[in-house]
Structure formats: structure tokens, C-alpha cells
Design a protein around this nucleic acid. Sequence first.
DNA 1: TGCCATAATGTACACGCGTACATTATTTGA
DNA 2: TCAAATAATGTACGCGTGTACATTATGGCA
Lengths: 340, 340
Amino acid sequence: MANRKEVAKLAGVSEATVSRVLNGIGPMKESTRDRVLEAAKRLNYELNAVASSFARGKSGNLGVVLPYVPKVHLFSTYYYSELLSGIGEAVRSKGYGLLLLFRDPASVYDYISLYRTQRVDACIVLGASAVPSEMVGINQLAEERLPFCVMDQRFDNPLVSIVAADHEQGSYEAVKHIINKGYRKIGFLNGSPQYSNSQDRLLGYRRALQEVGIQLDESIRYEGNYSRTSGTQAASTVYRDLNKLDAIFVGNDRMAIGLMQGLRGLGCSLPDDLKVVAYDDSDAASLAEPPLTTVKVPFFEMGRLAAEKLLSQLTDKDSEVSVINEKLQTELIVRKSSGN
Amino acid sequence: MANRKEVAKLAGVSEATVSRVLNGIGPMKESTRDRVLEAAKRLNYELNAVASSFARGKSGNLGVVLPYVPKVHLFSTYYYSELLSGIGEAVRSKGYGLLLLFRDPASVYDYISLYRTQRVDACIVLGASAVPSEMVGINQLAEERLPFCVMDQRFDNPLVSIVAADHEQGSYEAVKHIINKGYRKIGFLNGSPQYSNSQDRLLGYRRALQEVGIQLDESIRYEGNYSRTSGTQAASTVYRDLNKLDAIFVGNDRMAIGLMQGLRGLGCSLPDDLKVVAYDDSDAASLAEPPLTTVKVPFFEMGRLAAEKLLSQLTDKDSEVSVINEKLQTELIVRKSSGN
DNA sequence: TGCCATAATGTACACGCGTACATTATTTGA
DNA sequence: TCAAATAATGTACGCGTGTACATTATGGCA
């Protein structure tokens, strides 16, 4: 494998000139540039990324940290796939690498070590929640003022950078959609409360109801954990309460699908017996029977935005290292599950 | 950020000794080790991964290359999620990093540059197919004898390392299952032919039929592209041929779901009017209506195996760098879509 | 006690690149 | 035409680690 010295010799210039040509730095004669590039091509030479990183003191990598427990699908794969694609898009266009890191959600993850060992220049945290062990790690990161960004999860700490979707508004619109169809008895199957977006959905649900003077009814609030199974489990309770329900708003598509399967198993006809509005607009939403009316979340865009903001802070010397705080809008996708 | 020199000074030893303690190399006094570790802890010192990589001449990264076209879901996310999890498991347990790389399937990807620039020590190629531009890149890789592995795609070149599933046998068993239920008129909706696993499924389908003397009928062979949409599009043709069909074997779950939705839209009752057996056992399989009888593929295991084999070749000096060729078995999961 | 094998540690340098600073070539302006 | 500005290139060193080799300490054995 050729190195800089050999290229310099072949081109008849110094190593510094080779370096400058390859990095496009400073003014230089066209003929010199050509000679160097020609020599590099002939020797099959490319910059050694590791050596380059070493000299620069930067890894050139953006870390993406995601929760992982063997054999457990913690995440709806749609969600992660879209986020990763968005991040990948930004990372590539900025010439960075994307280092994937798996963490155990049950123990405190040492984010700072990633920077100390220089494995990453910045990182994005996916699937964070408000359980104490996770918060500790995030807060350490924030206090060190390291460049990072949490995806779709609020934190009290004002030093925590966040890119999220407006789930309060998204939920408001979803419930509003049901109300506008003339239904008043609207239940809510929410997901795990340790995610801030669960709380936000509740806020939106409440606002929509209160706005039109519908009394909040705690007895038609149900809780699952965003898994399909938990939706299925909720089915019996929901079935029992069917006389109290015209419709139900569900925290994500997977639970909604589980719920609908469970209800159908109990003899329900959907959407006749119960209107359903779900959340995410994952691939499964249009596969469901009936197809789900659901809130579309711009996961791809969120990933891209977070990565771009972070990498810009690293690249531009003028852009101050400031806290990122973005909230993207959602969109209601109307299908059959909410009635005609 | 502390470096080795400071640790050495604080511990009262040479830098080499610090290095040996941290890498666990050579014999050394317990007391020395303790002093060094103590000093490192006090100074908050950790090995600089970039510098270490540089000195070793290895990046310490396993590259995972996957196809990506903006706004297009090339892949069933279940497939990639499982593979990545499996790879991540192996990578972490071996202390490597996982570098995610996106390629444009339409142009020749320069895999060799990844090694030349030392961004990766080895790589795994996901979503490869037999289209010319992709084959060129893979073959270059093979000819350079670089450590890599292609996932779930056959290549004629005997130098190409592969970890795959036995789709010929999986398809055989799927079709056999239908035959054993007493059906004889069995169609086949296959996926894109540039994937070797499509060809393998066809082989298995044929073998099962021929074994029991069922005449192959070309007129009930359909082709989609593994997308749900393509399954839906096939519905009208299948519907037209319904008198020629007892059952249909479908190349993956997504197409099967699309097909079933299309057929239902045309007034079919499933599984009464047509038995369906699909492939992958993705999350959607059990969500479908009716739930899909489908062939389960050990994606997680495949990812883990590929990564482990590759990294072992890098680590063990004795293990010869040999071509990997593994074929894992599938399992038929029986649900409602194939009848009772 | 003296010698040798082995343990334990130190010395010194390479790895490939980025870049501050020094130097030389070229252009500009009066 | 000549100094000054600027372009273009070269020199030299640092970045933090791994490791070959040299050196010193230790223990075993006759």
C-alpha cells in the first residue's frame, strides 16, 4: 500500500504539497495538482483514514447509540430503519463515518468514554427514556458539554440537545379527527410512561377533548408498552368497556394492530364496533385490517436533521456549539380504521 | 485529556509498561499492574482508540455495507434489523466497532477503498444481488483476497465468502406442507430474479411438486419484486386463475400480505378460497389476516455467524483466511393462512 | 557462591498524516 | 526597475500508541 512519501517522490514534490492537494488546502499551481493526482492514481494511493484521524485528533465518526437486548425487539423496526437512513444520509454527505453502538438499557452507559477514547466526535442517542439508569448517562454527557443529540425524548436538563416530533400536537389532531366525525366517547390506549412522547400524547388527547367540552373519563384510559402483545392483552378490557366507547386512540400502530386482532377474536367487527386511530404510520399501518388511520412521524427527516446539526457544529468554526432543540410536525393519515 | 506519558509518570514506570498493563501483554508484577491501573483511574485515562488503531495499522472496525436509495424502502426492515442485531452482538463481544456504510445499488461500489483507506478491517455486504454493477464490486473484493462476507446471496465465484439460508430446502418444505394437506394445484408468486434466493425458492418449489408427480404448470407462476405493492398487483391475475389454484406459495411475507389484501378486495375469502404459504416469518406475518403460514429464516443467527467468522479470521493468527460458506436451515411456521 | 534462565521493565522508534513556520517564486504597483 | 505583496512550495515536528530489542531484577540449581 503506497503512502504519501512515495507519491511525493513520484510527483517530484514535497509530502506537504501532496497533503495540500489531497485536502484541497491553500493556493497551488494547476500543473502541480495534476502531477500529484496523476502520481496518486498511478500508485493507487488514497489517504489513510486512520492516520488522518490520528493526526487531526478526530475520529471522523458519528456514533449512533441504540438500545439492545438480545432476542427482544425493543424497537419497532420501522422507527429505527427510518432514523438510521436519515442519519446515514447526512453522515455520508458530510464525509463522516457512522459508528453503530449498542447499549444495555438496564445499566448506565458510559457515553463519555466514547469521546475520551476518541471513537466518536459526536453521537446521537436513540430509544432513550426517562428510566433513571438512562438519565444518568445522558446528564453526564450534557454536563461535559459534549456534542450529542437525543432523539425524540424530552429531558428537563436544558443542556440536553433534542430532535423530536410534536406528539402533543399530533395526538391532538388525531383525537380531533375522531371528534370531527361526531364521536364523543373516545378512549386512549397509551404506551410506556417512561417515554416523554407517551406523556405528550396524553396531553394532546386531553386538549382535544377539553376543547370541545368532553369530560375526561379515567376509566377508558388503558396502558400498554408499545408492543403488539400488550395491545392484544388490552383487548379484553376494552371489549368489556365497549359500551363506553365510540373510538379509541392508540399510542402506536403495533399496539393498535394487537388490539384489533384481540377484539376481532372476541367477535368485534371493525371499524363498525370501534373506531381506531393509531400512531407512527409504520409499514404495518396500511397492512392492518382495516388499514389504520394513523399519525405519520417524519423519522427520516428527524434523523437527518439531528445528524446535520451535530456535524455542522463540528465542522463550522463559527457555528457556536449550542443546544439543539427541534420539534418536527406530524401528519394525520386517514384510512379505514377510523370509519368512513 | 490524559495520555500515556502522564500515567507512566504518576505510576513511576515507563510508558511501555503502561501499554503492557492496558493490553494485558507479557508477565508482570501484580504490584506494578495495580499501580498503573490506579494511576490510570486517577487521571481518568483510557486508551485513545484512534492512536491505537493507527499504531496497530488496523481500524478495529467491521464494515456493514447496505443498499440505500433515498425515500425507497429497498429492504424489509425486519430482515435488516435482525441481521444488524446479530452482527452487533458478535462485533461487541469481540471488541470491534461496527461501521455502517450505505451504497448506491445502481453504481459500482468501491469496496476496496474501504480497506485501502483503512476504514474497515473486514466487511459484510447486505442486500447484494446479481445485477452486473453489484457483481463487479464483489468480484473485485474477492480477487484481492480481502476479508469479507456476502449475506444470503450466491455467487459463482468460489472466492466469495457467503453466509446464507437454505431457501431451496425451506421452499421445498413450505410447498410440501401444502401438498400434505391434500392440495395439488399450487401456484408460485416469486420475487425479483436477480436475487439468488429467488432462484433457490423456485428450485425447492419444483422439487416438492415433482417428487409427488405433480405436473409443473408455468401458467400459475407469477413474479413480483418482494414489495407489498407488487403482491397487490398480482392479485388480479391470481384472481383470474383461481380455478387453477388450490394454494399459492409466495416468496416473502410482504408480497403475500399485499396479495391477500388484493384478493380480499376482489371478494375472496381467505384462506377458504386460496391457501397461502409465505416466507421470512417477519413481524408482519402474525399480524396479517389471516396470520401467515411462513418459512422462518434465522437472520439474527446469520448475522452473528458471519461477523464471528470474519472477526475470528482477523484475530486468530492460526485460523487460515479461508472462504466462508455457511448455509443455515429454515423452519416452517404454520398458522391460519394455509388452512386448518 | 556463581551462573543461567526467565521475569520484569525500560529505551527508542515507527506508524502516516496535518500543519506551523520558513523559504522561494511570481505578480503587482508606482 | 525594484520593493512589497502574495502565491506556491518545502522543512520539520507532533500526534499517542505498539513493539522490537536492550537492560536489569529475580529465582533456581549445582
